[in-house]
């Protein structure tokens, strides 16, 4: 049998085959990542840079000339009452929609997971609002919530309560929109939680039972809730992003009214940018919007990621 000879190693310089192999590997790496890098730059990085650049100008669609104005747009934002109201309304909306849609989604997932019969049916029913077109469904909600002919108020009248003008009153409009938002988001959250639930090892529940976690309540806190940690973090993140991005219902049902009571960030940006054509100013709002979202996400992951991933 032949013995295998190893060439003397440690030779430095361009002729070193090991260095050449390393270089070609690096090159191959870049070639493989190339398409993704190009697309990321083209579709995400460049538009973001464009928005940030535009936010520093007074650019208006249809007008000639573009002037660099520094942080003037941002300074104007600070004193813009519409923008501040919009910010507050978006915050309120998010604070209602996120916890409700997450909790109800989790509850629905737990109920569906616990019972084998009709699982597919209930999953489909809860998921319907996610796949239905919100703009089309908005008309249904307009009818349901109509102050005089709407079934919701008819039901309230039946038990002796005078129902409010849900979408027309400045006290109730944000709440009504938030409930529609919850209705829409629950199904999606439920599906994510269902996926998270199936990933929990059955043996952990067996161990919990043997360890005297006698009730479903005990086992939920001992196993389900901690094991769902990563899923919950993800669901909350997605829910916050979706809630902050509320637009369709406002646009179709209330147009930000009455009296700016349902003025939300995207609606305000849309108005400034596409109705008043003040692209520079709208860009500044978009940058603020992006900054808020990114700050939220970073906070969430910094604070929670270590606590929900256990390895």
């Amino acid at each position: 049998m032949d013995s295998i000879a190893l060439p003397a190693s440690g030779r430095a310089g361009a002729s070193d085959p090991a260095a050449a192999a390393r270089r070609s590997e690096t090159l191959a790496g870049w070639r493989l990542a190339g398409p993704a890098v190009a697309l990321l730059a083209l579709l995400i990085l460049m538009p973001t840079i464009a928005v940030v650049t535009l936010s520093l100008t007074d650019f208006e669609l249809g007008y000639d000339g573009i002037r660099f104005v520094g942080f003037d747009n941002y300074i104007e934002l600070l004193g813009d009452r519409t923008f501040l109201i919009s910010l507050g309304n978006t915050l309120t909306y998010t604070l209602i929609v996120t916890p409700l849609s997450v909790l109800i989604g989790l509850g629905a997932a737990l109920l569906i997971e616990a019972e084998v019969r009709g699982r597919a049916l209930f999953r489909t029913i809860y998921f319907l609002p996610v796949v239905s077109l919100l703009v089309a469904m908005a008309t249904v909600w307009q009818y349901l919530l109509h102050p005089t002919i709407g079934p919701v108020n008819a039901l309230l009248r039946f038990i002796g309560i005078a129902g409010p003008n849900w979408l027309g009153g400045s006290d109730t409009v944000l709440l009504s929109l938030a409930l529609i938002g919850v209705w829409q988001a629950v199904g999606f959250n439920m599906v994510l939680f269902l996926a998270g639930l199936t990933a929990i090892p059955r043996e952990l529940y067996a161990a919990a039972e043997v360890d005297r976690a006698a009730t479903a309540w005990d086992r939920f806190w001992l196993v389900t809730w901690p094991m769902l940690g990563p899923t919950t973090l993800f669901v909350v993140t997605i829910s916050v992003i979706n809630a902050v991005k509320v637009f369709e219902t406002v646009s179709t049902l209330t147009q930000g009214g009455p009296n700016r009571a349902s003025e939300v960030l995207l609606w305000t940006i849309y108005q400034e940018g596409f109705v008043y054509l003040r692209v520079g100013y709208a860009s500044a709002m978009t940058v603020v919007f992006l900054a808020i979202l990114m700050a939220l996400m970073m906070l969430q992951y910094r604070a929670l990621d270590r606590r929900v991933h256990y390895t």
């Binding site: 090892p201 952990l204 067996a206 161990a207 043997v210 005297r212 001992l222 196993v223 901690p226 094991m227």
Partner: peptide, 18 residues
């Protein structure tokens, strides 16, 4: 199981990872 006063060791150990 919770009332049986028995302890079990599982093949996968089934430790609570959190």
């Amino acid at each position: 199981p919770s009332e049986r006063d028995i302890a079990m060791v599982f093949q996968s150990y089934a430790l609570y990872p959190h």
